[in-house]
Design a protein around this nucleic acid. Structure first.
Length: 468
RNA sequence: GCCCCCAUCGUUCAGUGGCCUAGGACACCUGCCUUUCACGCAGGCAACACGGGUUCGAAUCCCGUUGGGGGUGCCA
């Protein structure tokens, strides 16, 4: 068991594979690493795990860095595993020399065929070349690590407690491909060792790799002047979808960049992500500035159970953050989301939008009617508004009065309500439906004053006509 | 199949043997405000998966059952 590092000794890393855009699951891992680094005054490391040349895309590295930056997650050191292949291979060679690893020329198909021929239901590598003393053949042999046949490999997880694996269940896994390129486990173990990583904070889907990494670390420690003590592991609960399954790129909306593009605020996203698997120690409000949470953040407060990524709650967080902005700030962040709405019009109506919109991409729906063509209300709304009473005369009177009054917000409001008083009727809803096509929305008077009187009258007349 | 893990309101976080007739937030419902909606405010609905232990006492500890998830790649 390792002595927990504290204070400025802490070194954590976020290690994404650049095989896709940053998704919410990895963003959460990055965040928790960052929280801990900042809480302890330690070092946050970004390590790009791009050992799989076929799937890694260099341009995605920048996309990931951008998304992290957007979330306000910064780092103190950065590495790329593709720059360090020589080190991993040297380490692997040494393992072979010392008999801790060996060459193997079995193809996956051959292994599978042997397993099926045996018919005992076992899968995975069968140890066929374990003791056959094969030597290196260019493009043909992989390097496999020789796992112990007996005993257990165990460790204490800061979040999940003691976890133990029977070594007999560990197969001899590949550490160097036949192409000569090292794989995840060696690269990961070597880097954690040589970079002095003290805390490994990552998703629960990686728990099963711990024994392999631990075994490798032990085997490689003599090669370097580094602390052989294993790091502290903290495996985060998975973030799941409504089916309680790990978020997947194919089925779920997981790209952090997509949320940004839709008009979620970085602070809201970060704050929400933080509440998945963790809550403030003081039991206080879950929406607060990040500094407050950084101060309280402890890895062993993290939950064990998976958490559902609830977009509805994210939206609530975003709404709160949006409303906490000054109007000027709100106008600023809204710019990319205005759609057909002129900037000066939006500036005038921004306060109305600010308290109604939860995500910025909802702005066109809220205000678009002002500049769009005449609306087409649903039958349901139509019936709700015009279904009873004698709406015809009310509309007639509205058209008449509105054709006549001053064209200012105050005069329009006074006119519409005046007709209401005169006829003892509610006049706002009919006007609203005629102009916007729906029964809910921002106050009408300013937008109406901004619109041409003729347009307003046209929509009112069209509604009157449909009434028959 | 084998290995590992998880289990409190619909969701999320709180609860670490007595303060729990289980608390906050989201969602939902009701009311207030308002000639719309929203914001705001006041209420409401709603959970310790099940079965055995341990204990004077269990949501909290142990065992089992059931359910769920993750892994099982020359991916990470």
């Amino acid at each position: 068991m390792s002595a927990p590092a504290t204070g400025a000794d802490v070194r954590v890393r976020f290690s994404p594979a650049p095989t896709g855009y940053l998704h919410v699951g990895s963003a959460r891992s990055a965040l928790f690493n960052w929280m801990y680094a900042r809480h302890t005054g330690g070092t946050m490391i970004l390590r790009i795990e791009d050992t799989d040349a076929d799937r890694s895309k260099p341009e995605l590295v920048d996309a990931i860095r951008d998304s992290l930056g957007w979330l306000g997650i910064d780092w103190d050191e950065e590495y790329r595993q593709s720059d360090r292949f020589d080190q991993y291979r040297a380490a692997a060679d040494s393992l072979v020399e010392r008999g801790l690893a060996y060459y193997c020329d079995s193809t996956p198909e051959e292994v599978k065929a042997r397993n099926e021929a045996r018919g005992d239901g076992a899968t995975g590598y069968d140890g066929y070349n374990r003791d056959r003393g094969l030597s290196f053949v260019e493009g043909k042999t992989v390097v496999r690590f020789r796992t112990p046949e007996t005993g257990t490999t165990e460790y204490d997880d800061l979040i999940r407690g003691h976890i133990s694996f029977d070594n007999s269940t560990l197969e001899d896994f590949v550490i160097v491909r036949s192409s000569g390129v090292p794989l995840f486990h060696v690269a990961n173990a070597w880097d954690d060792l040589t970079m002095g990583i003290t805390h490994v904070v990552r998703g629960e889907d990686l728990v099963n790799t711990v024994p392999r990494v631990l075994l490798l670390r032990e085997a490689m420690a003599p090669l370097v002047d580094a602390d052989p003590t294993p790091p502290v592991f903290a495996h985060l609960p998975l973030i799941v979808n409504e089916q309680r399954k790990k978020l997947s790129k194919r089925r779920d909306d997981v790209s952090v960049g997509d949320y940004r593009d839709r008009g979620f605020l970085a602070d809201a996203m970060r704050n929400y992500l933080l509440t998945l698997g963790w809550g403030p120690r003081d039991g206080g409000d879950e929406i607060r500035p990040i500094d407050v949470f950084v101060e309280q953040f402890e890895l062993d407060d993290i939950n064990k159970a998976p958490a559902f990524f609830d977009v509805t709650k994210l939206e609530h967080f975003n709404g709160e953050y949006l409303r906490a902005l000054s109007v000027e700030e709100f106008v600023e962040v809204a710019q990319p989301h205005l759609g057909p709405i002129p900037a000066d019009l939006f500036a005038a109506l921004a306060p109305y939008a600010q308290e109604r919109v939860k995500v910025l991409d909802g702005i066109p729906e809220l205000l678009g009617w002002i500049v769009d063509d005449a609306p087409d209300p649903s039958d349901k709304d139509w019936k709700k508004v015009f279904g009873k009473g004698e709406p015809g005369p009310i509309l007639d009177r509205l058209i008449e009065a509105l054709g006549d009054c001053d064209w200012t917000a105050a005069a329009i409001e006074e006119t519409v309500f005046g007709v209401g008083t005169e006829l003892d009727a509610k006049t706002q809803l009919p006007v609203r439906l005629a102009l916007t096509g729906v029964r809910a929305g921002i106050p009408l008077w300013e937008p109406m004053a901004w619109m041409d009187r003729a347009v307003v009258l046209d929509r009112l007349r069209a509604t009157r006509a449909r009434l028959g």
